[in-house]
């Protein structure tokens, strides 16, 4: 499993999860978990996904997600989960 975190932050609006999830489906990426919260006054949606079966490499996925961020006027980031596991798990 190649776990990665997608985070979307900015002003809350409709269709955030729907749009991201649709794009992920097109790239054959499975969603493992979803959570949302407020970070420094910003709405933040976090999604853990598995890139194992994806039809493209890491940077390809990151590039494909970028237009969704632009469309929603929100920041969208893709990063590998390893950094969170390393930092918070002994």
């Amino acid at each position: 499993m190649k776990k990665a975190l997608i985070s979307v932050s900015g002003a809350d609006t409709t269709g955030i999860i729907a749009r991201v999830a649709t794009k992920l489906y097109e790239m054959n990426i499975n969603i493992l978990d979803i959570s949302q919260t407020i970070l420094s006054g910003c709405f933040t949606m976090m999604m853990v996904v598995d890139l194992e079966g994806a039809d493209r490499d890491f940077s390809g996925v990151a590039e494909a997600l970028q237009p969704i961020g632009d469309m929603l006027h929100m920041e969208i980031h893709l990063q590998r989960m390893d950094i969170f596991d390393a930092m918070h798990r002994i």
Binding site: S7, L32, S35, T44, M46, V48, H88
Partner: peptide, 8 residues
Amino acid sequence: MINTQDIL
């Protein structure tokens, strides 16, 4: 699986 506090 998501520990929101840690990630944030």
